[in-house]
């Protein structure tokens, strides 16, 4: 704090700290606390608020436990978010390695720019673009039919296919960048030393590159999983009749049912799930929180 004052003076320092504190407190902490309180209260008509019926209970959480459909959707959200995370990892790791160790350093910025440009378009438009691409009579089927790869058009948007494709596309870069950063910090001599000692490419990655980039991998996995599990736009735009996402249930409770209390309970269940998942991933990969924060 003293260092901050010395660098920027009292006026600017207090303004900066104050604004950050305001943002954290008013836009993150308090709304969440309010929702947390909501989740333990019943959904009541306005006249009953503060009345004898307005008491804390676990009823909203019981609602979830008593709806097998919601539980199924919950697990499917976990399952498919994990699948998307894993796919992103498999796609990103070789690319990250290529960008940081194989391709000429002069070319890397160009490749990064090409990867980033799609991110400048809003998520809703990108999802909709995929909706068009994947449509039954859309360009992808037309192309594959034209190339005689397939003989009958494929229903890309059935089941969770569309959602999975959309989520991978939307969040793959959140996996790429942390892994890229991690691999970039690896001394290339380490890779060469392993090779020189007779190591095959696979073993070099398994014993040297992956252990070194574990914090980046963990960080990417956590990020992508969180974004997937919490995504609303992609699952609702690229949905099929039987691809419900858990966030859509929360949305339903809140905006269609106007029952913020049950919605809040569901939202906190999702939050708990995410924290649990992150803890498990960190445990499995044996990384600490400070490594991820780096």
């Amino acid at each position: 704090m003293g260092e901050l004052f010395r660098r920027y003076g009292y006026g600017l320092s207090i303004t900066m700290v104050g604004l950050t504190a305001f943002w954290l407190l008013m836009l993150v902490v308090i709304p969440n606390l309010v929702l947390f309180e909501f989740s333990f209260k019943p959904y009541l008509p306005v006249v009953d608020l503060g009345g004898p019926k307005d008491v804390y209970s676990l009823k909203n959480y019981e609602t979830f436990l008593n709806s097998p459909i919601h539980i199924t959707i919950f697990w499917k959200t976990v399952l498919y978010s994990s699948l998307v995370t894993l796919t992103c990892l498999v796609l990103s790791y070789p690319l990250a390695y290529f960008l940081s160790k194989v391709c000429r350093p002069a070319n890397a910025p160009t490749i990064f720019l090409l990867l980033l440009i799609p991110l400048w378009v809003s998520e809703i438009l990108r999802s909709f673009a995929w909706f068009i691409i994947l449509a039954f009579q859309g360009p992808l089927n037309a192309l594959l039919l034209g190339l005689h790869v397939i003989h009958d058009p494929i229903r890309w948007l059935s089941g969770f296919n569309g959602v999975i494709i959309g989520l991978i596309y939307s969040y793959v870069l959140f996996m790429l960048f942390p892994i890229y950063n991690a691999i970039s910090s690896l001394d290339t001599n380490q890779v060469e030393a392993a090779q020189d000692l007779g190591s095959s490419m696979w073993r070099t990655h398994w014993r040297v590159v992956i252990p070194h980039s574990k914090p980046g991998i963990a960080s990417g996995c956590v990020m992508v999983f969180m974004l997937c599990a919490g995504s609303v736009i992609v699952p609702s735009t690229l949905a099929s009749t039987n691809s419900r996402w858990f966030t859509e249930i929360i949305q339903q409770w809140m905006f269609e049912g106007l029952d913020w209390n049950t919605g809040a309970a569901y939202a906190f269940l999702l939050l708990v799930l995410c924290i649990l998942f992150v803890s498990i991933v960190m445990r499995v990969l044996n990384v600490r929180l400070v490594d991820i924060a780096k």
Binding site: D187, N189, Q190, E192, A193, A194, D196, L197, R207, V208
Partner: peptide, 10 residues
Amino acid sequence: ALIFQNLALF
């Protein structure tokens, strides 16, 4: 077997 300038121990 090569011994690197910075040794490159794992």
